[in-house]
Design a protein around this nucleic acid. Structure first.
Lengths: 335, 335
DNA sequence: ATTTGTCGTCGAACCGGTTCGACAGTAGGG
DNA sequence: CCCTACTGTCGAACCGGTTCGACGACAAAT
């Protein structure tokens, strides 16, 4: 039952350790018969190279650190949409995922990277002034982020083009003649904390609306029930607007039942557009036209960029900052 | 920028490597002044022990493998409720989480454990005849599972007592005089695949209902929109029953909007009870009385048991199989 | 004064791989 | 037929920690 080492394999095949190693890696040529004997020995002993030893010898762990930040004021199921594609993409490239959810992000990054537990990291939910970035800069491992920080520096950054998303949705409503619009944004705390996507979206939307002469009333949306429903009802009580832009996962998830219960029909009584991924929409059965946030695409991009930087020669290429162009999925909820 | 090793620290403090190691671990006494010199050196050099080297020397990685299986026919957000508490509990015990989502579970377990990347594993979503178990048995690392397999063997197993949950909900309806009840279960495929929780719940519920003389009409619920809504409408079209037990995340998440749209009020027109965690209920704003599934409790229990087995002496104590007693949260959706 | 014990430290071996340089044997080129 | 080149293999060093046994210094016990 004791796990066998490369030494056991070597002995059994009657060769030296180095020969086994070369047979495994193919970095030197090995005669046909020797290789077969080694392979047989490996099969019989059920040998698998020890990851720690290999990491020590090669200074490569084949592990990617995935740093997730869960904020109480954010809607958790959205995160999973990033995590899964990242895990899949990593595995396809031969990497495993060390998932770190510590609340003290900077400290966690420091701990994992300085002990050499990962060859590189993906940072999720990156804030404008993300405290994990200064730590990353002192480490030698490369990093890729999802979410746009103020200074991307050496890192590959991927995010949705939220400004464009805001414009697209305003256009969509403007084309249909709406003049008064409600905008529900993420919670106020998200702005204060520096969730840049929040104000990138809002600023662009407001500016675009202004250019059309559209009046926008904007609210910071809640994220916890029963507050979400209460707030929605208050907003709808006072409503004069004909359309609603929702950039808040919790609010849009709760919207169908609130609208039903008030007898407000979409799009007849109210036009609604949002910002969410296709999967998210399915999950909550959302019948609303929305800008697709493509979490799987962003996650995969991040991993691919990171992998390139980990295997590639030093400073292989300039850091990428890619704002993915949003696409709109028309589900007919505005007219 | 090059990371420093214990050798660097030793040289700088004017001692030997072993002395530094002992100063770090405290396994032998070190004089006050030497320790201070070593600590100073460590601070100045920013030294952190290399995880790979330490793992090699101690055969301890301080990593827990977390094996998650995502089935297309299951509702994904539920999984996150387990993952987060597990990650937190692991960190509190000094472990990091290697999260593995490969579809080929048995192979993944084999790969991670035989290469010694983790000291132990937590298996999520364990099936009755889970193919990962035979692999686990050939490995030396301990494992804890969430979900009850046919033969728990050497492993610690934690799950909700779904049979009891079924009985509790039937009792709840029986007490209120219901004689005809709809039961919506997980998808048929879940039964075939061996998701034991599904039939443990259903069998107990049916038996309990029979003992009361309650008639139950049972349906395999869908998990993907728009099928979920379609099916619900079909079921409600034909309904003669006065109450509904829902043991299906996707269905219960979709239920409020379907009921609203049909003008069915709860509990006036229909009593509804379900099986879901408090967090899940908040997420989807579910106003239904339900049995609490306590994913956080189960996750933490699994980690704690695993940690005990990893640090403890060989075969420290008999394997635990713990079916957590369900508690009901009355939200007044049945009368 | 000698023995016994404790404290603090060091050197060396070990964990399990990878990789470099050396070398014997064989093949190809002149 | 000799020299060179290449193929296949081995031994040793190394990666960066931990741990065991040894040992000198000094204190306490006899």
């Amino acid at each position: 039952m004791k796990v066998s080492t490369i030494e056991d394999v070597a002995r059994r095949a009657g060769v030296s350790r180095s020969t086994v190693s070369y047979a495994l890696s193919g970095k030197r040529s090995i005669s046909r018969e020797t290789r077969e004997r080694i392979e047989a020995a490996i099969a019989e002993l059920g040998f698998t190279p020890n990851a720690g030893a290999r990491a020590l010898a090669t200074s490569q762990t084949m592990v990617i650190g995935l740093f997730v930040q869960f904020f109480e004021d954010e809607f958790s199921p959205a995160m999973l949409q990033y995590v899964l594609p990242i895990s899949d993409a990593a595995r396809e490239a031969g990497y495993d995922i060390l998932m770190v959810t510590e609340t003290d992000g900077p400290h966690a990054v420091q701990r994992i990277l300085s002990s050499g537990m990962a060859d590189g990291v993906v940072l999720l939910n990156v804030a404008y002034e993300d405290q994990r970035l200064p730590v990353m800069r002192t480490m030698k491992q490369p990093g890729a982020m999802v979410g746009l920080p103020r200074n991307p520096d050496d890192f590959d950054v991927f995010d949705l083009d939220f400004a464009e998303a805001g414009r697209i949705l305003v256009d969509h409503l403007a084309e249909r003649g709406h003049r008064e619009v409600i905008l529900i944004t993420p919670r106020q705390h998200v702005y204060e904390r520096g969730g840049a996507y929040a104000w990138r979206f809002r600023d662009a939307a407001l500016q675009q609306a202004a250019s059309y002469g559209i009046r926008v009333r904007s609210y910071y949306g809640e994220t916890q029930q029963p507050l979400v429903n209460q707030q929605l009802n208050t907003i709808l009580d006072a409503r004069e607007e004909t359309a609603m832009i929702v950039h808040n996962d919790a609010v849009i998830a709760a919207l169908p039942s609130v609208l039903y219960s008030r007898g407000i029909r979409v799009p007849d009584d109210l036009s609604v557009v949002g910002v969410f991924s296709e999967d998210f929409g399915k999950l909550f059965s959302l019948p609303y036209t929305a800008v697709e946030t493509s979490p799987n695409k962003l996650g995969r991009l991040a991993v691919q960029a990171l992998v390139q930087r980990m295997v590639g020669p030093r400073a292989a290429n300039a850091p990428r900052v890619e704002l993915v162009a949003p696409s709109i999925t028309d589900r007919g909820s505005a007219r």
